[in-house]
């Protein structure tokens, strides 16, 4: 028996979520993640970009017990189960922060600023947080 979500066929748009803020200091990172999880219910072509301070959202080894806030970084690893597998990190942002792909909690594709610009041009909807 097919599941209900396998039967529906609507128009598929390319949605890109651009994450530009560090986690914890503001609510943007967590809010963006919530919107991404909800968007997964609509079977769209979703991609995530981490650029500027947004690259810090997926830094490995976060432990927020000491500041009394929830560590939501493990949730990025759940995205694969939501069929959200296109995760991009802007090379320039990562390098200026002394980070490498190895520092990321999830597998990501590293794109240069110019490659990212082209990818943005292809999107139907871009939501920046």
């Amino acid at each position: 028996m097919a599941e209900p979500w396998e039967e529906e066929e609507g128009p598929v748009k390319k949605f890109m979520f651009v994450n530009r803020k560090a986690p914890y200091g503001t609510i943007y990172a967590l809010e963006s993640l919530e919107v991404v999880l909800i968007s997964a219910a609509f079977d769209q072509d979703v991609s995530l970009v981490f650029m500027d301070d947004g690259v810090y959202q997926i830094k490995k080894g976060q432990d927020s017990k000491g500041i009394g806030m929830k560590n939501f970084s493990p949730t990025y690893r759940a995205l694969e189960g939501y069929d959200i597998e296109k995760l991009f990190v802007e090379k320039e942002s990562m390098e200026s922060r002394g980070l490498t792909a190895e520092d990321m909690i999830v597998p990501v594709e590293i794109l240069s600023k110019d490659e990212l610009t082209s990818l943005m041009e292809e999107q139907d909807v871009i939501l920046t947080f």
């Binding site: 599941e3 979500w5 999880l37 997964a40 219910a41 929830k70 560590n71 939501f72 493990p74 949730t75 690893r77 759940a78 189960g81 939501y82």
Partner: peptide, 15 residues
């Protein structure tokens, strides 16, 4: 425990 969220129903079903 692993992901710090409750899964959506279809994610739960698949998993």
């Amino acid at each position: 425990e692993e992901y710090q969220i409750a899964p959506a129903v279809r994610v739960l079903t698949k998993a």
